[in-house]
Amino acid sequence: MGDLIQVTIPSPKKLDIKPENIPLDILYEDEHLIIINKSVGIVVHPAPGHPNGTLVNALLYHCDNLAGIGGIERPGIVHRLDKDTTGAMVVAKSDRVHQHLQGQIKAKTARREYWAVVCGSPREDNGTINLPIGRHKTDRKKMAIIPVEKGGREAVTHWEVIERLGNYTLMRFLLETGRTHQIRVHSTHLGYPLVGDKLYGSGGSLKVNLSGQALHAYKLTLQHPISDRTLEAIAQLPEEFTKLLRVLRNR
C-alpha cells in the first residue's frame, strides 16, 4: 500500500507504407481529390495483420505527394469502408481539401448512399434508426448498441426498401454519422442482418458464394472543396451483388 508504480508508454510506431502498383477503379479525379470504387477484400489502410496490399498502398503509387495528407498512417483518407464492403470512397490530395471534406461529413452535408440485401422483409417501407454504437463488451471485433453514458456514440441511419425479394429485401441506407459497422449493427438490431454478414448474422442460407456482406456504397454526393460545385459519384454494383439479385429474383 502506498507503492508508486511508474509506467512508460512508448510512442506509436509509425508504419513504413510503401507505394504498390495495385489497380484502382477511378470514378472521378482531379488535382484536389480522387473518388474510387473500392473492391471487395481490400483493407483501406495498413494495420496489424494487414501491413501492405491496402488501398493506401495503391493510392501512394497512383497519386503524387499524397504522403502525410491528413496524417502519416492514413494519408488522404476521409472516411473508411469495411474490408468486404465495396463502393464509392473519396480521398483528399491536400490538407485543405481533407479538412473541408471531413467538415462536410461532420456537418452531415455529404450524402452517402448504400445498397444492401438483408435477410427478412420489413413491415414498413422506410424508417430511421437512431441508436448509439460502441465497442462490444466481450467481442472486440464487433460493435454493438451501447448507451451514450456507457461509451456509445451517436449513430443515425435512414433506410428505405428498394425491392422486396421474398424473404429478402434490397434496401437503401443513408448515413448521417459514420460509426464503425453502423449499417450492419443497426440493420441487425432491427432483425434484418445483411446477407453474407457472418460477424453479425448467420450470413443467410442462400447458395451464393459471397466474398463478404452484401453491402455496397452506391452513391457519394459532396461539394467540391475548391470549385464549390456538387460532385455525384455512382459506383455500379459489383458482379457478386448483381448475381445475388438475379438469384433472388428467379426464386
Rank of each mutant, 00 (worst) to 15 (best):
Leu175Asp: 09
Thr54Pro: 00
Gly127Asn: 10
Pro238Tyr: 11
Pro19Tyr: 03
Thr169Asp: 04
Gly203Pro: 07
Val208Pro: 01
Ile183Thr: 09
Thr188Cys: 04
Asp3Glu: 13
Gly120Lys: 04
Gly70Gln: 01
Arg172Tyr: 04
Glu29Ala: 06
Arg96Trp: 15
Gly71Trp: 11
Lys219His: 13
Ala47Pro: 03
Pro193Glu: 03
Ile42Asp: 00
Thr230Gly: 11
Val118Gln: 02
Val97Pro: 06
Lys207Thr: 08
His224Met: 08
Arg96Asn: 15
Arg164Thr: 06
His32Gln: 08
Arg112Ser: 05
Val97Phe: 10
Arg184Thr: 06
Leu231Ala: 12
Lys14Val: 15
Asp25Cys: 11
Ser211Met: 12
Lys18Arg: 12
Tyr218Leu: 12
Gly151Arg: 07
His100Trp: 15
Thr128His: 10
Asn65Lys: 14
Met171Asp: 06
Ser202Tyr: 08
Ile226Arg: 06
Thr157Cys: 02
Arg249Met: 06
Leu170Glu: 06
Gly191Val: 09
Glu240Phe: 01
Gly76Pro: 05
Arg251Ile: 11
Ile5Lys: 08
Ala144Ile: 05
Val97Glu: 05
Gly212Lys: 04
Asp16Pro: 09
Gly127Pro: 04
Val185Ile: 08
Ile226Trp: 05
Ser227Glu: 12
Arg123Phe: 14
Leu15Asp: 05
Asp82Glu: 07
Gln213Glu: 02
Thr157Trp: 00
Asn130Arg: 09
Leu81Phe: 12
Asp16Leu: 12
Thr85His: 03
Gln213Ser: 01
Val56His: 01
Pro23Thr: 02
Glu163Thr: 14
Gly70Glu: 02
Asp125Tyr: 14
Gly41Asn: 05
Glu160Phe: 07
Ile5Gly: 09
Gly204Arg: 00
Tyr28Ala: 04
Asp95Cys: 12
Asp25Gln: 12
His186Tyr: 11
Val78Thr: 06
Leu15Ser: 07
Val97Ile: 12
Thr230Gln: 10
Arg96Val: 13
Ala144Lys: 02
Leu248Ala: 03
Gln104Ser: 10
His79Thr: 13
Met1Trp: 04
Gly196Arg: 00
Lys219Thr: 15
Val156Cys: 06
Arg74Ile: 04
Thr242His: 07
Thr177His: 08
Ile69Met: 02
Val40Tyr: 05
Thr86Pro: 03
Thr54Ala: 00
Gly53Thr: 01
Asn126Ala: 13
Val44Thr: 11
Arg251Met: 11
His98Tyr: 15
His32Glu: 07
Gly201Ala: 05
Ser121Met: 10
Gln236Pro: 13
Trp159Met: 13
Val43Ile: 02
Gln182Thr: 10
Thr177Arg: 07
Val43Asn: 00
Phe173Ser: 09
Gly87Val: 03
Leu60Asp: 01
Cys63Trp: 05
Pro147Met: 11
Asp16Ser: 13
Leu60Trp: 00
Glu31Trp: 14
Met89Ile: 14
Lys207Trp: 04
Val117Met: 03
Leu101Tyr: 01
Val118Trp: 00
Lys137Asn: 10
Gly70Ile: 03
Ala144Met: 06
Glu20Arg: 00
Ala235Leu: 10
Ala155Leu: 13
Glu239Ile: 08
Leu175Ile: 15
Met1Gly: 10
Ser205Gln: 13
Glu31Ala: 15
Gln236Tyr: 14
Tyr114Met: 03
Gly178Thr: 02
Arg80Ser: 08
Ile183Glu: 03
Ala233Pro: 08
Pro48Lys: 04
Asp3Ala: 11
Arg123Ile: 15
Ala144Val: 05
Lys141Leu: 09
